[in-house]
Structure formats: structure tokens, C-alpha cells
Amino acid sequence: METVLFYIFAALAVIGAMAVVSNTNPVTGVVSLVLTLFSTAVLFVLLIAHFIAVIQVLIYAGAILVLFLFTVMFLNLRPEGLVFDVGRFYEKLGVLIILMVVTGAFSMELFSNSIGSANGGTQLPEEFGTVEGVSRLLFTQYLLPFELTSILIIVAILGVVAIAKRRV
């Protein structure tokens, strides 16, 4: 069952990703990315990371990509304004081939020296992947980095405001 689910959603994720990088229309690209992210969220569930899966859907698919969509709409790009992005076939092909070769080599390496299965005899703690488990770690051991991320966000907000303000 799990194997089937993995292959289905892995295939969906790859298809979505390919759609993202191959589509001329940014709106289609964003929607394709949603597909990939959603598929990944399902894979997180398979990896017993339930909380992470929820966050993935809520924040990534729900918030960030909406922001993308909003920007694309705001800029109101027309297909004829995107003509520049077609063509240059050989260039793309070259990049693709190089990357595929590397990935192939990498995958071969991984498959040939199996590191072990995902459930390879590891005894999972009871609260693995739950909100409680993740938050305990987050608010005790990793409190300082967590707080620092809040500073990062504040800085980002200020930066965005500064950039946006200058145009007025």
C-alpha cells in the first residue's frame, strides 16, 4: 500500500516540478508547484511527519504560493510579454543533459550502496512527528534559533516595506 502511494505521489511531484520549469505561463507554473508541494506533503505523511505535512500544506501551498499568485496577477503579465522565454532549445538541452547525468550518477550511487530502509529497525519515539514532539524540541533545545527566525522575519518585513515604500 505504502509503496503504491509513494510511487503515485512521487510521480505526481516530478510531473508538477517539470511543469513548473517548462511552462511559459507563470500562473500555470504556480499551480504546478502547488501540485508538487501537495504531493510532497503526502510523502511527509508516509514518513510519519504529520505536523510537517500540515505545515507544508498550510504555509507553502496556502500562504507562499498565494503570494506568488497574487504578484503574478498584480504584474498582469500577458503571454505575448513572455515570448522571450521560448526558444534557445540547445542551451536548455545542454543544461538538462548535464544535470541528468549527474543525477543519474548520484542515484546509481545511492541505489548501489543502500543506506538502509526508512524503517530500518529504528525504534521511533512515541510522539514522533506529532505537534507535541516537534514543539517540545523547538521550544527547548532550539529556542534560540527559533527566536532568531522571528528576527529574520521582522527584517524581511522591514525590507519589503522599505522596497515598497520607495516607489510611492
Partner: peptide, 19 residues
């Protein structure tokens, strides 16, 4: 970015061959 990626690829290739 492409040059950077090529550098990363070079490092990966090197590590693979070393392994």
C-alpha cells in the same frame, strides 16, 4: 548560477569518483 552549479557538479563528481 550556472557557473556555480557547474562548480557544485564538479565537487559532486569528484566525491563520487573518490568514493
Amino acid at each position: 548560477v550556472g557557473v556555480m552549479a557547474m562548480g557544485v557538479v564538479a565537487i559532486i563528481v569528484y566525491m563520487l569518483f573518490r568514493a
